[in-house]
Write a protein that binds this DNA or RNA. Sequence first.
DNA 1: TACTGTGGGTGACTTGAGTCACCTTTATTG
DNA 2: CAATAAAGGTGACTCAAGTCACCCACAGTA
Lengths: 214, 214
Amino acid sequence: MNTDNNLQNYIDKLFPQFEPALKQVLIESGSIKSFEDGEMLMQTGQNMRSTMLIIEGVVKLYREGEDGNEFFMYYLQPGDACALSMICATKQETSQVMAKAVDSAKGLLIPISLMDTLMKEYKSWYYFVLETYRSRFEELLSVIDNIAFKSMDERLDFYLKKLYRDLNNRMLTITHSQIANDLNSSREVISRLLKKMEQRGEVALYRNYIEYLK
Amino acid sequence: MNTDNNLQNYIDKLFPQFEPALKQVLIESGSIKSFEDGEMLMQTGQNMRSTMLIIEGVVKLYREGEDGNEFFMYYLQPGDACALSMICATKQETSQVMAKAVDSAKGLLIPISLMDTLMKEYKSWYYFVLETYRSRFEELLSVIDNIAFKSMDERLDFYLKKLYRDLNNRMLTITHSQIANDLNSSREVISRLLKKMEQRGEVALYRNYIEYLK
DNA sequence: TACTGTGGGTGACTTGAGTCACCTTTATTG
DNA sequence: CAATAAAGGTGACTCAAGTCACCCACAGTA
């Protein structure tokens, strides 16, 4: 299945802005790796040997607290790259975050040894990397806004909206305790806030999923 | 005062890793700008025409809430660069944060038109930029850790420790309400927590300044 | 069908932190 | 020196959010 042809298709579709020579290098040197539903792509403290471009599925990025808490940061979509893997790869640093596949996902692994050359030789790669940094940085800033300035009900609404947009589906298959986990809150609190949202007609609640109506 | 000779000294001292040719370019194309105590170097929404290296003083980075709240993120020291100005400069984006001079500060402005060339031509610049991204990204992650997982007293301790380390002085000339501002809390809360820290012998409290003892 | 595990609901309670009102101390300045 | 402003202290109150205990509903399965 993972023929060169297959990879070529992915790259053409997801990275149309890359120049042909760059695409060729990626096809020759990159390798596809598949991840099962819920599998970790990256763990806190893990050493990084390659940078990764997401080509299928959705990847969830978490920050891990000292006591094992998880805190959801953002999703990566096909066409996105892990900003941290790019930065850390160059410096041989270890990961500061956890990445988990939502459903199953596929990534294109690029050996770190290539990074310097790609940056130098291919303008479209250079801009892609900068844009990756910029958008992840902004995403982090909006995360900070939320936890610094907003209360739980606003954060919950923001979270559901992000879920709806990033997964492009009003039916959010998620349980209350998963949400509580992602927001570092507790199930009861989330349940109560969801009920209030339902009373305001912003969501409809079902077992194991939520319909987002805003 | 701002002779080429002066700038040469700054660059030699703060960026010894830069190759001579790069230093020469920076001297020829950069310009020094001075900021007074408390002056803004950057405002939310402002357009960026140049990237900035800090060469004197300390710069405080804030995130601004919708209702005008400020939330302190981190300090920049001489030898640091503003990561956001680097990223946004390339994309002609507007600033997402506020930067304020602590005491007086000096910055070396580099026109954005130079960025692409510098990245391509000078390896030491390229690594400098990547390292800037990486360290700011990590700083943001630790900010998230703090507000997501920690309670006010831990955040206060973390804040004071950062102040002590970054300004390299146990005597922290800051008022309780300034701290409250930076942590997006209120003066009374900070005063009470400080008093508890004092009782544990972790700080000594005076009018207008705090001695950090840990 | 009865058993069991998971998702979700709910009332009662606790607590960290923000707010309000009002006070004292200290520094500045006309 | 009196007036004023800013820094800081304190008790009382409020409230969002976390915790505890216990409940029911539903689905899978033995």
